[in-house]
Design a protein around this nucleic acid. Structure first.
Lengths: 372, 372
DNA sequence: TTGTAAGCGTTATCAT
DNA sequence: ATGATAACGCTTACAA
């Protein structure tokens, strides 16, 4: 028997003969095969494909023709990656199920910007869930990635963070709790939320309620006690609430289980059926605000005459109708793009740095002077 | 000068001395370093990490200790990939911008199922846009992937398809136009749509209009002429329309520019302000149907008393209110899971096969006998 | 402009 | 249970 060694290309033991007809097992052509067929050296052929050096037209044509002849589809990415030390892949680590993550328009916008910013570095995005203790080992430890971005992760991600550090991969954290040395993309959540609150106070509102984003991975719906707040982990939710509390320390606060219209409806239901009824409801996202408006209108309340409603994010909410939400517009896409740019810089050998973004208050048609 | 060869690990020329302090340039430990430190052979160390053979406890402990000592984070995925011929990555090729793709709840559900189905094969998902003629070469040709899934791609993807074929990668197409030999995940769009249409006809409706999904990559909003339909490329839209036309050949047909509530509102606006006003509107997605309902209610029309509305998909539409949509429920998550399972099978050396799914009609509260 | 040579770090096989 | 060996396919520095 001539050869029975393992051949990764075929994923199984390769014997010198095929099972039935004596034909040699089909082996994929390599760049050396192409070079040989073209009568050039492997390095020349390599350069033809990478374009990293000048090659005479005649040579290039011969190489390309040989490649086409042999059905060679270009350099094997796996081998090229090992040689260059780069896979061209950046992991985006998401907390929780894909389904939930991508239900949030802000996340989608951020992902959009991220892929965009990464594209200029020639990198693509690998979707990874934050589940380090998965049976069979975490994908984060074995995936051929050049860098990682932690997106929308609360402290639950500590473990993922350690893995990335152990692998010494460039890392950027978007609005998460990452600590010291890691470049972060941040937002002025507290200030922006305070700005909204001030607007509402200036309109004369005193009976105000708040609907927050989920505060932790538990995502429990309901009133936010001091104890609960102390255990909260989701930075944006905590910060926005702090901003509001600076203006309305006594506001009643309810947590939603997700950033969705339906959750807004549920929370507003509780708030609007209470006595005294708030004259303004500050929601921590535009999706929640849309739900609050829906709940108000279902009860025959007019927005903004009977109830003022504010949001946060400044995203286009599909199905909000004619209302123009009073909100604070965050540069969601820019956040992602900035993360991508930092990754690109770090991959290019530069130091990554944190980037801070600010929101822009936008007065809409959903707030008005408090009824008296 | 002892050495000035290229070192992929550091991404730059490696000199025998560091720039300032004479310290040797820090080199990452390899599995051989770990093996040496533990006093075992590299193959033994490898087996400790892969678990693919029995190792005595004492040996394993020594290796692990050495690894921990040296700060070794595990086998280099790039090198392991080259050796095994597997990267553990499957590309999902999407048509158009991420932002648009992920705005569709059906796509999200399918992605959810796909990642799920792939997880059992130990594979993760690389997001790739369908743009083969991008400057710098298509990512699809150079990405270290084991297989590819084409999701929601019309014929525009022919080129991507060719690349995947040239690379001889396992491929599955979800509801797309891929031709013969490629395993496909399909849906009984025509039959399911016909079923909805029959339900509406049995309720006595004769004046019926249709709101379709985008018909091609142009995604133009407006009336669907025979010429336009002839140039349509989006299979589900075409098939669903065919199903409806079998029941209501004369129905007025409007195409939406996306599958969203707002687009439904726009299309329904045109239809409801026309004379004669339809007594039923068949939307090709639940999102569109939600918009149709919204538009109707905005005009003071009651659903279903004055207007019957049907959808397609059976997804939970955030903010649909109390209505229970009459629709056809498609197994969106299952479609993705099936695609993942086929990829897994092909990666395991088995033949991939097409999988056909059927929708289930669901009568809701948005259809009623035609007003007379 | 092209060729030569030396690995990149790992893991499957086979022998012990 | 462990070790020696031989690839995996490519890209780069350097010489010609």
């Amino acid at each position: 028997m001539l050869s029975n060694r393992f051949d990764p290309r075929n994923g199984a033991a390769l014997s010198s003969e095929n099972g039935c007809d004596g034909t040699p097992a089909p082996r994929r052509p390599t760049i050396s095969d192409v070079a040989r067929a073209a009568g050039v050296s492997p390095s020349t052929a390599s350069v033809v494909f990478s374009g990293k050096a000048k090659v005479s037209d005649a040579t290039r044509d011969r190489v390309l023709a040989a490649a086409s002849d042999l059905g060679y589809a270009g350099p094997d990415p796996l081998a090229a990656s090992l040689r260059t030390g780069r896979s061209g892949i950046v992991a985006v680590v998401l907390e929780g199920a894909l389904r939930r993550t991508f239900l949030d328009p802000v996340t989608i916008a951020t992902m959009d910007g991220l892929t965009d910013g990464l594209a200029s570095a020639g990198a693509d995005v690998l979707l990874l869930r934050d589940e380090p203790h998965k049976p069979g080992g975490a994908a984060l430890t074995t995936a051929p990635i050049d860098a990682a971005v932690l997106l929308g992760c609360s402290t639950a991600t500590r473990e993922s963070l350690d893995i990335v550090r152990a692998r010494r991969l460039p890392l950027v954290v978007i609005e998460g709790d990452a600590g010291d040395a890691v470049p972060q993309i941040t937002l002025d959540n507290a200030e922006a939320a305070a700005g909204i609150a001030r607007h509402v106070r200036e309109l004369g509102h005193r009976e105000v309620a708040v609907v927050t984003l989920p505060l932790d991975v538990g995502r429990r719906r309901g009133p936010v006690s001091p104890e609960r707040l102390a255990r909260a982990t989701v930075a944006p939710a905590i910060q926005r609430l702090a901003g509001i509390r600076g203006v309305f320390p006594e506001a009643r606060v309810l947590s939603a289980a997700a950033s969705s219209i339906d959750e807004g409806v549920i929370a507003a239901g509780t708030l609007l059926d209470a006595d005294p009824r708030p004259t303004a409801i500050l929601a921590q996202s535009d999706m929640l605000a849309a739900g609050v408006i829906r709940a108000a209108e279902d009860r025959g309340l007019r927005v903004p005459e009977d109830l003022s409603v504010t949001g946060f994010d400044g995203v286009r909410v599909d199905g909000l109708g004619a209302h123009m939400l009073t909100t604070s517009v965050q540069p969601a896409t820019e956040k992602g793009r900035a993360a991508g740019a930092q990754i690109a810089a770090m991959l290019a050998g530069q130091a990554g740095e944190s980037v801070h973004f600010t929101c822009r208050f936008r007065a809409g048609s959903t707030t008005a002077p408090a009824p008296r």
